[in-house]
Amino acid sequence: MVFLLKLAIVVFIIRSFLFSPFSIPSGSMQPRLMIGDYLFITKWNYGYSRYSLPWGIPLIPGRILPRTPARGDVVVFKAPPSAKQDYIKRVIGIPGDTVQMRGGQLFLNGKAIPKQRVADWVAPVSPNTNCDYAFQRIVAEQPVCAYPQFRETLPNGKSYNVLDLGTTEADDTGVFTVPAGHAFLMGDNRDDSADSRFPAREGGGIGIVPLENIEGKAVVNFFSTDGSAEWLLPWTWFSAARWHRIGEGF
């Protein structure tokens, strides 16, 4: 009994202050993250708050050792308004920044962020791949998703790929000004992400997110599965693994 209590305390400390696992539940961060990816986040990068602790236990007032995320960081956070669900998005704007979308182009502090067309993002169709029929193709007799892909580069030099599937309401917005103590977060899958472009609503947008809600920074994929495995058939755990995604950093 004493051993189990000590083990629980150690696990609590590690998950609260050092590392924590996170699984990807949606395609909002494609192409960088896919449903079925499992990753580790580090907890010390931006300081600590109640949301650093399991279940958001209110033992930490405000933020301790606070630091502002860098633009381009991928972070896990408690989603407004209820702060009950964990979401993962990319930091686009930090306090004092202005953010706007115009015709699918990202503008930061009034300047267009370079957006370069690159090769389509191609992924095999699987149980863990959401793929609109319009973007399905057959490659080597196998069905795949082929999405238009672009490379964005932020003023600090951080580059990453985004998906832009067409014209949506989120392609044109007003100008958002990020207040002190907050961050503007967006999904890399720009047409399939409920993010800071939308008002905070349970199960919908998240608004501009308080830095206190951020739990940690995504650092590495430690596993990925295409969803085709069956628990009672252990050999399918290996065939379903996306081995090429394991070990990818951010």
Rank of each mutant, 00 (worst) to 15 (best):
121 W>G: 03
85 Q>R: 13
179 P>A: 05
195 D>F: 05
156 N>E: 15
214 I>V: 14
210 P>T: 13
241 A>D: 00
18 L>E: 01
147 Y>W: 10
200 A>H: 08
38 Y>C: 14
248 E>D: 09
118 V>Q: 03
240 A>S: 15
230 E>P: 08
140 A>Q: 07
131 C>A: 08
152 E>M: 07
41 I>D: 00
58 P>Q: 09
59 L>C: 12
221 N>W: 05
242 R>W: 01
205 G>I: 12
208 I>W: 03
12 F>N: 06
203 G>N: 14
71 R>S: 11
150 F>D: 09
239 S>D: 00
45 N>T: 04
171 D>R: 04
89 K>W: 01
245 R>S: 04
160 Y>R: 15
179 P>E: 05
239 S>V: 01
238 F>D: 00
242 R>L: 00
80 P>L: 04
245 R>M: 11
200 A>K: 09
182 H>C: 04
63 R>D: 02
159 S>V: 04
139 V>E: 02
226 D>S: 07
133 Y>R: 14
67 R>Y: 02
74 V>L: 15
172 D>L: 07
165 L>Q: 13
7 L>W: 14
126 S>I: 10
154 L>M: 11
6 K>D: 15
30 Q>C: 04
220 V>H: 02
64 I>V: 03
208 I>P: 08
70 A>Y: 13
119 A>N: 04
213 N>W: 06
214 I>G: 10
216 G>M: 12
69 P>D: 02
238 F>G: 03
140 A>S: 13
225 T>H: 14
32 R>C: 02
166 G>W: 06
49 S>N: 03
182 H>L: 04
248 E>Q: 10
99 V>P: 11
170 A>E: 11
126 S>K: 05
155 P>Q: 13
236 T>P: 14
78 K>D: 03
157 G>R: 07
190 R>Q: 08
207 G>W: 01
198 F>Q: 11
97 D>E: 10
134 A>I: 06
128 N>I: 07
10 V>F: 13
163 L>E: 07
163 L>S: 10
189 N>M: 12
101 M>K: 01
25 P>A: 12
33 L>E: 01
124 P>K: 03
162 V>W: 03
151 R>D: 04
48 Y>S: 09
117 R>T: 09
148 P>Q: 03
24 I>A: 08
135 F>L: 07
3 F>K: 15
30 Q>I: 15
186 M>Q: 14
27 G>S: 00
81 P>Q: 05
38 Y>T: 06
243 W>G: 11
1 M>H: 07
98 T>S: 07
172 D>V: 05
105 Q>A: 11
169 E>R: 06
55 W>A: 11
180 A>C: 01
61 P>M: 04
27 G>I: 02
240 A>N: 13
207 G>H: 09
245 R>E: 08
80 P>M: 05
42 T>D: 11
173 T>N: 01
191 D>L: 02
